[in-house]
């Protein structure tokens, strides 16, 4: 009975998969314009990104960019420039993206104007940072992180702002350090309220909490980041190292019931992730 039921489910899955494939094929053949292809590639790239397949996503963003460029050559329009800009943002080509959004705004796409400004400001801040002008760079990253509306820029700016400020942290008096960390955690929490499923924000929160010595909370945020997915392999590994680090710190500080409870929960997670042991993530060489 169970076998029949499983088979039915499987058949349904295959049929629905085939249906999606057929619909996509028809959509592709029916909408042969480069604009449609650019949109489809962009949507597919965003879907891959959400499911943590960022390398495939990058390839699809490139395809989307190519199609948008084809469309611009044949029929330049606000939408085509907007699509080109979106692909460029996701490929970290900030200067080109800003230019594309400006052209989209000139052709009547209202939202593109503010996107162009944010992308351009971010590009400027990155070049300030590369020239060693840390303070103005931090100021601009901070403005974008707190007031930006274009989510790819907001995320990138927040990461850069935090890392730049953490670099200055050891030179500050202890009281100032605590004040800075609390303020920055507030900014990340605000970003999380708007986008609670963003693994990268949970990663940032976990890192900041460990600077405050709040290892239990840091561990929980790192678990959230892992479960929601992180956009790059080295981020994923760094986050796993953070989980192990929190485990070691808590092993030293927790006692009695608190330790029993934590270690039980920890074991459940590492079993789920198929880690070799408490301190060896699945990707680590043994």
């Amino acid at each position: 009975m169970v076998k029949v039921w499983r088979q039915t489910i499987l058949n349904k899955k295959i049929l629905s998969g085939a249906g999606v494939l057929l619909a996509l094929t028809l959509l592709f053949s029916g909408c042969s314009s480069s604009l449609q292809k650019a949109k489809l590639h962009l949507a597919a790239a965003q879907e891959r990104e959400r499911s943590f397949r960022t390398d495939e996503a990058t390839a699809l963003y490139k395809k989307s960019l190519e199609e948008a460029e084809n469309e611009i050559r044949k029929r330049p329009s606000a939408q085509a420039y907007l699509l080109r800009g979106l692909a460029e943002v996701n490929l970290a080509r900030w200067t080109e993206a800003s230019r594309s959004f400006s052209l989209a705004a000139t052709l009547g796409e209202e939202k593109a104007e503010s996107w162009a400004r944010e992308v351009s400001l971010y590009g400027l801040a990155v070049s300030f940072q590369e020239q060693g002008l840390t303070e103005p760079a931090i100021r601009q990253f901070s403005i974008l992180a707190e007031r930006g509306r274009f989510s790819p820029v907001v995320r990138a700016a927040l990461g850069r702002m935090i890392d730049s400020q953490l670099e200055l942290l050891p030179s500050l008096p202890e009281k100032e350090q605590e004040k800075y960390l609390t303020k920055t955690i507030g900014i990340v929490e605000k970003a999380l309220e708007l986008d609670p499923a963003c693994g990268y924000y949970h990663y940032l929160l976990s890192q900041l909490l460990s600077h405050q010595g709040k290892y239990r909370e840091s561990f929980e945020a790192a678990v959230m980041a892992r479960e929601l997915g992180l956009p790059k392999l080295d981020l994923h590994r760094d986050n796993d190292n953070q989980i192990v680090f929190c485990y070691r710190q808590l092993k030293e500080s927790l006692t009695g019931e608190s330790w029993t409870e934590f270690s039980r929960a920890y074991r459940l997670w590492i079993n789920k992730w198929k880690w070799a042991d408490e301190e060896t993530p699945d990707w680590k060489r043994r």
């Binding site: 953490l166 956009p231 760094d238």
Partner: peptide, 9 residues
């Protein structure tokens, strides 16, 4: 893209 500035611990 990772945060390079880690706590002393």
């Amino acid at each position: 893209d990772i945060l390079r500035n880690k706590p002393a611990e």
